[in-house]
Design a protein around this nucleic acid. Structure first.
Length: 512
RNA sequence: CGGGGCGUAGCUCAGCCUGGUAGAGCGCCACGUUUGGGACGUGGAUGCCGGAGGUUCGAAUCCUCUCGCCCCGACCA
């Protein structure tokens, strides 16, 4: 058992922090609420970016970049948007520093109009779109930006909620309401497919209730997942902004009918929060567990030897294993590459950057097993003198900690890809089975209260979304409406709260 | 922003009550014995005791003020 990680049963939130620490994904920064994403964690974000970016491009979007600082007056233009974000905006009021005469520095050069650090970019982007869009021929505008944003949160947790975080925000403008709605749903689907296929996390799709939607949106759609502690986590959102921002920023075009009219806009985003979600969804008491598609290192090879002769023998044999997996050319290339700590990395896939590594550090094999296990490396291959003699190796799977002896002749890139895909599928199936086992359909409010108090999970019930009722339910149970699932669109029943008929089925849960 | 807690070695913390000039475990470095799931021995390096004032011959320790972080609540991707 891992001695540096608390078990989930002992203390779930400490377990989460321990897993991050043990896997070296992130560190606290010397800045309130901020984190440093270390290479192990950032590689995961890069993998996610690569896959998502491809999906955005495939649906016709292009990338651009807008400024970090936003004139304060922009924020004031959309009433609900201000309400939603004003409380958590960092404000830049000065533009230089000077000596304070006591050996320190002080802010100087007060700005006439303060800037805010973007909590999201609808406003600056709206301002620019107003200038770029003149005619229906300019539409649709389909732009995405990869950026950092800042929301001055009261309470922060690594990845799940930090003051600064990385995300992507798509911003589109359309000619008609229908097109905007289509786009909003298209991107929700892109997110759902990405999260399910790439991150192996099952999601529930659907619109948010009025009280949970994005400030300034007409409709917000979300993908929700269930974490191992029974709490829900919103993995991404897609907003139909209607003409709210178009009116606020005067984004107008001349239509096919020669009349000037406002655009219909959307915005959608996912953030580094997904990494937190990934950790909580798949990891176990031994540490991080990564789906193969996300893992920066697919295989860790652990050599075992006693004498120098054995070392030479094992080393030559490992070259054959690496050659079989990564190709002969990579065997020499990998050795020449600069590396730290006696760990040699060989590219398995130059496109994704995924590696096979060989751990030559001067530790005992047991240390190395734990080391790579805690970092979630999907497969470990143990190679010792016995394996060399038998032209075989011991292959260990991180997901179920199983081990198998595999013959060298069966090792190939295709073998690793096949094994990766089956683990990927297994992880998704496992997560889905967990979610289904922890989803409860209830017929009454009392039943819901009991389940939420005993063993939290997803609770599905007929309910008429309503600001007041939701506030009351939150007060009494701490649960909120996560979404109104699409998968239950054709169902209707009696509201568990008001008793009125014709209520849709909604998804309740405690949430992050 | 309210309530609580904590700042001493890279990490976890002891020492503080009762002032006398810095400790343990883990980690790190070197050497040796080891090596198929967390080894052991020997030696070694590491501190503005969060910061600023004060009391005192003398402050990690007592007093005042500050700053920061963590946890619990109200708000949030």
């Amino acid at each position: 058992m891992a001695k540096n990680i608390k078990t989930r049963a002992e203390d779930y939130s400490q377990w989460y922090l321990d897993v991050i620490k043990a896997s070296q994904m992130a560190d606290y920064a010397p800045v309130r609420g901020c984190m440093v994403i270390r290479p192990e964690g950032f590689a995961i974000w890069e993998a996610m970016q690569r896959d998502l970016d491809r999906r955005f491009k495939e649906t016709g979007h292009t990338n651009a970049y807008f400024p970090l600082l936003i004139p304060m007056s922009f924020m004031a233009k959309e009433a609900q948007h201000v309400d939603g974000f004003a409380m958590e905006c960092a404000v830049v009021t000065h533009h230089k520093l000077q000596q304070d005469g006591k050996g320190g520095l002080q802010a100087a050069g007060e700005l006439e109009e303060p800037y805010i650090i973007r909590p999201t970019s609808e406003t600056v982007i709206g301002h620019m779109y107003a200038q770029w869009i003149e005619s229906y021929r300019d539409l649709p505008v389909l732009i995405n930006q990869w950026a950092n944003v800042m929301r001055w949160e009261m309470r922060t947790r690594l990845f799940l909620r930090t003051a600064e975080f990385l995300w992507q925000e798509g911003h589109t403008a359309h000619e008609t309401a229908e097109e905007a709605e289509e786009e909003t749903l298209r991107m929700l689907d892109v997110y759902a497919e990405f999260v399910e296929e790439f991150m192996a996390m099952p999601v529930v799709k659907g619109p948010k209730s009025d009280s949970e939607k994005f400030p300034g949106a007409v409709t917000t759609y979300a993908i929700e997942s269930l974490m191992q502690d029974g709490k829900a986590l919103q993995n991404g959102t897609s907003h139909n902004l209607g003409q709210n921002f178009a009116r606020a920023f005067d984004i107008k075009f001349t239509g096919r009918d020669q009349k000037e009219q406002h655009c219909w806009t959307t915005s959608w985003g996912v953030s580094t929060r997904l990494i937190g979600s990934l950790i909580m969804m798949h990891s176990d008491d031994e540490g991080l567990v990564l789906p193969p598609r996300v893992a920066p290192n697919l295989v860790a090879i652990i050599p075992i030897f006693k004498t120098d002769e054995e070392r030479a023998k094992v080393s030559a044999y490992i070259d054959r294993v690496v050659g079989a997996l990564c190709g002969e050319a990579e065997v020499e290339a990998g050795k020449k590459r600069l590396s730290s700590g006696d760990i040699t990395r060989y590219f398995f896939d130059k496109h994704t950057g995924q590696c096979v590594l060989v751990d030559w550090r001067d530790n005992r094999p047991g240390d190395k097993q734990f080391h790579w296990e805690q970092r979630g490396v999907p497969f470990r291959i143990e190679v010792g003198p016995r394996d060399v003699d038998g032209e075989a190796m011991v292959v260990k799977k991180r997901l179920d900690r199983s081990k198998d002896v595999v013959k060298l002749e069966n090792i190939s890139a295709a073998w690793l890809r096949g094994m990766s895909e089956s683990v990927q599928a297994e992880m998704f199936a496992k997560a889905k089975a967990f979610r289904d086992a922890n989803t409860h359909h209830v017929g009454s409010y009392d039943e819901m209260k009991k389940i939420l108090a005993d063993k939290p999970g997803f609770v599905r019930a007929f309910f008429h979304p309503d600001r007041e009722a939701e506030a009351k339910i939150k007060e009494e149970t701490k649960a909120t409406v996560r979404c109104i699932p699409f998968d239950a669109r054709d169902k209707q029943g009696k509201c568990i709260y008001s008793g009125k008929d014709g209520a849709p089925e909604v998804l309740f849960a405690l949430s992050y």
